[in-house]
Computed example of a mutant assay.
Amino acid sequence: MTISLRHARVRYGPLEALHGVTLAAPSPGLTVLLGRNGSGRTTALRALAGTVPLSGGAVVWDGADVTRLPPHRRARRGLCLVPERQAVFASLTVGENLELAARAPGPALAAYPQLAPLLDRRAGTLSGGEQRMLALARALLSRPRVLLVDEPAQGMSPRTAARTYELLAGLEACVVLAEQRLPEALFGRPAFVYELRRGSVVLSGESAGWERR
């Protein structure tokens, strides 16, 4: 299984954010989109999820063109997007957020035991790192076929971040991460990397040795 962008173009008003981007993410496997703010990495994730329309090109999933498939139907097929911001329902409790994905939160609490004492807290009162844990825990509970995550470890302690990358790298799914730079926790792990600048792919290759760039 593969999900891919083929010559994808995205416009925000008069500005083009993606200039004919082509990339592919296999499953199971880990793909990392690298780039500074404004590089197009977040837009590429949103294009795969269908939350921004393409002005040109296509999104292909399992060999089928899903460019016109709306986000909720992609979600029903097993695609899950964890955005950088507003990734949790702030007015719901931690427990209620998890129940949206599964009745039994056990696996989520095994992944992030720090959430256990917070189950009755409103998600909007959590720290940034705690909200990232909650968003990822809910995503893991949904057992996605394709998981798209923007800045997965933002706000987390180094230990929790390392645990997060271990969890993501071990999933039997297509996992696509958007990062500013390749995290040290992924050094030595199999992954394919695309580097974006100003809306275009400028470098790509296996992650082995990428840390030396």
Rank of each mutant, 00 (worst) to 15 (best):
L109H: 13
L118K: 13
V82Y: 01
P105Q: 10
D120Y: 00
P105V: 02
Q131H: 08
E130L: 06
A101Y: 02
P113D: 03
A102G: 05
V82S: 02
R132Q: 15
V82W: 00
E99Q: 15
A110Y: 05
A116P: 06
A135H: 11
A123P: 03
L98A: 05
L126W: 10
L119A: 10
E99L: 11
L100M: 15
T125C: 00
A123I: 09
L92S: 06
P107F: 10
A90C: 06
R132D: 09
N97A: 11
G78L: 12
P113C: 08
R103W: 10
R121Y: 10
F89I: 14
E96K: 11
M133H: 07
A87V: 01
V88I: 15
A135C: 02
A108F: 12
A116K: 14
Y112M: 05
R77M: 14
G78N: 09
A104C: 05
A108D: 10
G124T: 13
S91H: 15
L81W: 01
L100C: 09
P83A: 02
E96W: 09
L115A: 03
T93D: 00
D120W: 00
G128M: 08
L100Q: 07
A90T: 14
A87R: 10
Q86L: 07
A123N: 05
Y112D: 04
A101L: 02
G128A: 14
L134A: 07
L81G: 00
G128N: 11
S91P: 01
V82A: 08
Q131S: 02
E130C: 02
P117H: 10
T125K: 12
A75N: 00
E99D: 11
A108V: 07
P83V: 00
V94C: 12
A87D: 08
A116H: 12
G95S: 07
E130N: 04
Y112P: 06
R122Y: 02
S91Y: 13
L100S: 04
T125L: 15
T125N: 02
G124W: 07
L118G: 05
D120K: 14
A101W: 08
E84D: 14
A101F: 07
A123M: 12
R76F: 01
Q131I: 02
P105F: 13
Q86G: 13
L134E: 04
P117T: 05
F89T: 03
S127G: 14
N97T: 12
L126S: 08
A116R: 15
L81I: 01
F89S: 03
P107Y: 09
A108S: 12
P117G: 08
A102Y: 06
S127M: 11
G78V: 06
R77N: 00
Q114R: 15
T93H: 03
G78M: 13
A104I: 12
S91G: 03
R85E: 15
L98R: 05
P107Q: 04
A116G: 11
